[in-house]
């Protein structure tokens, strides 16, 4: 019962917020709705027992991708009048695409109910009692540890590459000198004065 209520709640909000993502006029609002949609999708994932995907959705999509979108949107110079005319122009195509997608989803759901498609030859049965984060973690940090570390090197290369290709020393910039800041004492920066009445302070 409770799962059913939760499912319909998440699903309804997901559908509504997904709709608002594409229909709201302000792109920043669109991103906000998108974040809400991600959250609700994460809720649905929890309900079906895929909590790892749920966390990925929240951490990666909401935490990184959506914030990135937000930055991009804020930096864009958007012509809102142009945007409105475009929506009218492409409405028919968009509706057709949407209808096709909806039909596909329904067909897929009917097919699933009629009997699932056996695509894989499972070599390892899934243990129902084991949460999938633990299952993933057990593999990631034992069997695949070597590759996990190698993947770390891939990220290191990405970091070195980004710095090598973009960093340059500019003349006239004032870089932060942490040791100088730490070495600064109160007597270098503050002054105790006792001004006479009516004279004020000279800075």
């Amino acid at each position: 019962m409770i799962q059913a209520i939760a499912f319909y709640l998440f699903a309804a909000i997901l559908v509504v917020s997904a709709g608002l993502t594409i229909s709201s006029r302000n792109p920043v609002h669109s991103v906000m709705w998108l974040i809400l949609a991600f959250f609700n999708a994460a809720g649905l994932m929890v309900l079906v027992g895929a909590e790892f995907i749920a966390m990925l959705l929240v951490i990666v999509y909401v935490g990184a991708v959506a914030v990135l979108f937000l930055f991009v949107v804020m930096m864009m110079d958007i012509d809102f009048a142009q945007l409105k005319t475009d929506v009218a122009r492409y409405a028919a195509i968009g509706l057709a695409l949407g209808a096709a997608l909806a039909a596909e989803i329904m067909i897929a759901a009917f097919a699933w109910n009629a009997g699932r498609i056996d695509l894989t030859r499972r070599v390892a049965p899934v243990d129902r009692a084991l949460p999938n984060i633990e299952a993933l973690g057990q593999l990631l940090y034992t069997r695949y540890l070597f590759l996990f570390e190698a993947a770390g090197f891939v990220l290191l290369v990405a970091m070195i590459g980004a710095i090598v290709l973009t960093h340059r020393e500019r003349a006239g910039t004032r870089a932060q000198n942490i040791s100088r800041q730490v070495a600064r004492r109160p007597q270098d920066a503050t002054r105790n004065v006792k001004p006479a009445v009516g004279q004020g302070v000279e800075l």
Binding site: L147, A150, F153, V154, V157, A158, I160, G161, V164, L165
Partner: peptide, 28 residues
Amino acid sequence: TGMGLMVSAGDLLTLYVGLELQSLAAYV
């Protein structure tokens, strides 16, 4: 390092990680 992983690969995952490590450095 990535190239070493590529030629030693015994698994599709090793293949891909090695390939990406090599390629990413090569792009830079």
